[in-house]
């Protein structure tokens, strides 16, 4: 990516920047993995009991 395009307010089309287009959709999509198989908080409850003996 050229420096000009990175500047705030630039209307230039980004070039050679193929990985950027799917980055945001991919990020939003993978939010779901923090819920898979029990949310992160449920995993913490499991560890608290199974490993730390609370």
């Amino acid at each position: 990516m050229e420096r000009d395009e990175a500047e705030h307010g630039s209307n230039e089309q980004p070039e050679d920047f193929d990985w950027a287009a799917p980055a945001a959709p991919s990020y939003f999509n993978y939010r779901k993995t923090t819920i898979y198989g029990g949310s992160n908080e449920i995993q913490r409850n499991i560890l608290a009991k199974a490993v730390l003996g609370f």
């Binding site: 908080e41 913490r44 409850n45 560890l47 608290a48 490993v51 730390l52 003996g53 609370f54």
Partner: peptide, 25 residues
């Protein structure tokens, strides 16, 4: 956390503290 008592219970019975201990782990 398992020994120290507050409000009549060990503070380790509070979920918020258990989660912190898990994050440390």
């Amino acid at each position: 956390l398992k020994t120290r008592k507050q409000f009549g219970v060990p503070i380790g019975s509070f979920q918020v503290l258990q989660h912190r201990a898990v994050d440390m782990y």
